[in-house]
Design a binder for these strands. Structure first.
Lengths: 186, 186
DNA sequence: GTCTATAGATCGATAGAC
DNA sequence: GTCTATCGATCTATAGAC
């Protein structure tokens, strides 16, 4: 039996899935309440700022996850090829091999009034910087350009996988992308 | 002075921009009414099915535009390099050099209950098929793979450009992508 | 902390005058 | 075809008992 929801952080995973499934505007408090198992009273107790604060908390958790599992390993890596492979493994795990979309990317496209624009921009900037730094250390020419291309391409793969409702697209395109990046390290 | 709205089609451009800016769930009839200059009475006169019919009509118009300006030229092209260049020119024009997002991609990520899933999937399938056919005729090995990669990468570029709020990302990445595709034609 | 009840606004959609 | 008025549902958010 899962631990009961006794603090904000316990509700974040379910909150993330709700926003992924319905978008920010489409995620009503009724849906959120059902998905988290928390009544409105509890939700506003944990998130006095309402839906906006819930989404912000989810974005913070996502950035923390990527910082720990993606950005920092890239910065601290000593073997570039292994670091690239590890990044794609973690990306594949996080996006559940294409069954899960990127909430940050979805908010980039669908954010009403750009309320989360700063957090969205920071996520992508941090990712590109960390990858570019690794590629530069590996002696790749145009490291910044390649990093920008790779991070963008991952987002495109997620869009395409969801659009075609076909997870083989994700596996095929992520595998191909990884091979192309590794080839640049030689 | 612009022609008055006297038929469905006249309202589609404004409708498209509303859905792009607010998403499907976030586009309320109040916003739609203001953006189109049509009262609710007129909106329901033109679109008896309400918001869902408006979005479907927009998607149909988008597919028609891409069919005429992107898919068919790819299929009918005799000079592959010129066709690729023309595709990227039309894509850049359509997405206004990165200032405009792809509504189909946004619906792929944010569609509630996947109401438009079939239209979304068809759009991407048609694009990939048309491009793959051209690449195969040009003798490119793995034409289907490259086409899938390119169409996905364009979506990623749009996401990244919007996320970073920087149209130089679009110009840089689309230019680079075009060069990489042209290199495969040699 | 969690619950019910409900406020107050806005939602999509309809009706009917013009 | 377009307008205003309005319906009933749903929305976010709050209040107050427990």
């Amino acid at each position: 039996m899962a631990r009961a929801v006794t603090e904000r952080a316990d509700a974040l995973p379910a909150l993330g899935e709700v926003f992924r499934a319905h978008g920010y505007s489409g995620a009503s408090l009724a849906i959120i309440s059902e998905a988290t198992g928390l009544g409105k009273g509890s939700l506003y107790h944990f998130f006095p700022g309402g839906k906006a604060e819930m989404a912000e908390a989810v974005l913070e958790e996502i950035e923390a996850w990527f910082a720990r599992r993606i950005f920092e390993p890239l910065r601290e890596a000593e073997a570039p090829a292994a670091a690239v492979t590890a990044m794609f493994e973690n990306v594949t795990a996080y996006f559940n091999a294409g069954r899960r979309i990127c909430l940050v990317g979805a908010l980039a496209l669908g954010d009403p009034e750009d309320v989360f624009a700063a957090a969205v921009a920071r996520y992508f900037r941090l990712w590109i910087e960390a990858l570019a730094e690794l590629l530069a250390r590996a002696g790749v020419a145009g490291a910044e350009d390649l990093a920008e291309q790779v991070v963008g391409e991952i987002q495109g793969i997620i869009v395409l996988t969801k659009a075609l409702d076909d997870t083989t697209v994700f596996a095929r395109r992520i595998g191909d992308l990884e091979r192309r990046v590794l080839a640049r390290l030689a």
